[in-house]
Structures are given as C-alpha cells and as structure tokens.
C-alpha cells in the first residue's frame, strides 16, 4: 500500500506544515528509485575535507628566507633574500624569489689550493694558486619567477602534542643569476685564447694553448629554468615555516677553466648546469585571517 504522507502529517499538531511538506516531498519522492541506487554513495562528489582552513587561498605570502647551495663543487653560495607569492587558490599561485649571496670555498678548494704552485709558471700545465682561485666564479644575486602548484595539504601531530597544518608545493619557472669572477689582468693576460693574433700580419702570434691564463668567461647575467619543491608548516593562521629545495638551472662554468679539453677557455666551456639550493624561511600570510571551506 502507498498511503499518502500528507494525510498522516495533518494528524500531527504543532509541526510546521511547510517544513514537513518540503521534507516529505524531498524524501518520499526518492524511494521508488532508491532501491536501485541503494549502494550509491551520496558523498561521491564531496570534497575530501570539510570546514578546512584555506591557509593560502587568496593570500599574499611574504617570506624572508635563507638559502644555501647543496653539494657545490667549488664555492658554496650562501645568502638571504625574499620570496613574494600570491595564491590564486589553495592549489595555484605565482611568485618570485630573489637572493643576495656571498661565496665560501668548498672543502675541495681547500684541499686543492694549498698544493698548487705559488707563482705562475707558464711552462707547466698546472695552474698557480692564484690562477685556480681567480677563475672560480661567484653568484652575488640569483632568483626566479615561477608558478606554483600545491596538490597536497594535511595536518600532522608531533609527539602527540603539537598539531599543525602543512602543505607540499611544487614550482616551475624561469631562473636568473648574476655571476661574477675577478681575474686580475696580470693573471688572465691572454688576449687571444685559442686563436692566432694576426694584428701584425708579418709576425702572427700562435695560441699559447695554456688555459690557465685565459679569461674565465664565467661572469655576467644568466637566464635559465627553475624547479622547486617545498613544504609549508603552519605555526598559526598566518605564520608558516617554509622549507624548500630549489634548482636554478642555467649555463655556467664554475671553475672558469677549460672544460672541453681544447686547451683554451671559450664560451663552449660553459654548459647547462643545475645549481641546487636548500632554503628555509618564515612565511607571513596576508591577510592574517583565514577562511574555511563549507
């Protein structure tokens, strides 16, 4: 039998008829189809987390940061800078990072340098200490502009006490760097590396085939690719610890020496190289108030 729900409702006093009718229509209309869909989940299209704090969406992120190379060959690049990012949504953002740095010799340089000749001797293939050190370059400024994707977010409990939110993000974009090398003219005194100097046609000067006195050609501006990945660990609603691994990839020749073994230094000795950095910063999210998802 299919009795009318409306008739039963009229026997109940004190109820809001409109609410009951609306509820009845909505719910009683379904059963005829319900059997077939009994095992259909009503949550299929629902988000994984409700009432989630949108810790990054529609917010500016300002991050004073520290950054250092990982496993550099000749010189560690260590510096501080700023990251500025705007989060279009809780997954997509764009931003830029810039870092001013100083350079520190690696342990490898510390081992090589003391064993080299104290003074220049062009009769040997071995560089002097000055020739070796002055060919190495530095990176006083570097940075990137990027698009960032934050596909993972979550929360963690540390020692069962501290519960914090976090997210993982991945970045890709364009990197830039300003490289600097200071080779004194008394050291890098070959003005025609690898070529014949025929300013005096009667007495052409053959290349000396000594790369140690060639200009290093490893300074100036570089543009390349940028990849990064990191984690925000939110200390509260507007402060987050920001840990990042960044790869600034561009053409470089850190040693400033002959790479392709043609016995002189030219632009072909530069190659596309990855400059891997690890950074840590404190992100300030603006505005400081967060919204929640429904």
């Amino acid at each position: 039998m299919h009795s009318s729900p409306l008739l039963r409702l009229t026997r109940l006093g004190g109820l809001s008829l409109a609410s009951a009718i609306a509820g009845t229509i909505a719910l009683a209309a379904a059963p005829s189809d319900a059997a077939a869909e009994r095992r259909t989940s009503g949550l299929e299209d629902q988000p994984a987390v409700r009432h989630r704090m949108l810790l990054v969406a529609k917010r500016f992120e300002l991050t004073p940061m520290f950054e250092s190379t990982i496993n550099a060959d000749f010189r560690h690049i260590v510096g501080g800078g700023l990251k500025l990012e705007y989060h279009l949504s809780d997954m997509l953002s764009f931003g830029a990072v810039g870092v001013f740095s100083t350079s520190l010799d690696t342990g490898l340089v510390g081992k090589i340098s003391p064993t080299l000749e104290d003074s220049v001797d062009d009769m040997t293939r071995e560089p002097s200490d000055d020739e070796f050190l002055q060919h190495l370059n530095e990176m006083p400024l570097h940075g990137a502009a990027y698009v960032s994707l934050t596909p993972w977010y979550g929360k963690l409990a540390a020692f069962g006490k501290a519960f914090v939110n976090f997210d993982f993000y991945f970045q890709a974009g364009v990197s830039f760097a300003s490289l600097k090398s200071n080779c004194d003219s008394s050291i890098c005194d070959d003005d025609h590396p690898g070529t014949v100097d025929d300013t005096d046609p009667d007495n052409p000067i053959q290349p000396d085939l000594n790369p140690n006195n060639d200009p290093p050609l490893n300074d100036g501006s570089r543009v390349g690719l940028y990849l990064g990945g990191g984690i925000h660990v939110f200390l509260n609603e507007f402060l987050a610890l920001d840990l990042t691994v960044r790869d600034y990839a561009f053409s470089d020749n850190p040693s400033g020496a002959d790479f392709d073994a043609n016995l002189y230094v030219d632009d072909n000795d530069s190659r596309f190289m990855h400059h891997l950095f690890m950074g840590a910063g404190l992100s300030i999210m603006l505005p400081t108030k967060v919204k929640r998802t429904p």
Binding site: A30, T40, G42, L43, Q46, A48, V49, R50, H51
Partner: peptide, 29 residues
C-alpha cells in the same frame, strides 16, 4: 527544522570534517 539547528552550530568549531567519497550513508529516504 523546528527544533533549531544546534547541531549545525556545533560544527562551527575548529575541527575539520573529512569525507571519503568511496563510502556513503545511503540515499536520503
């Protein structure tokens, strides 16, 4: 609807609610 929505107000706390779309609670009726 008559008794009010105390329960829904209770959701306005700090807790997030996780929903797994793989598992449902059946149709409304």
């Amino acid at each position: 609807s008559l008794l009010g929505t105390q329960a829904s107000f209770a959701q306005d706390g700090d807790d997030e609610i996780e929903v797994d779309p793989e598992e449902g609670t059946g149709e409304g009726g």
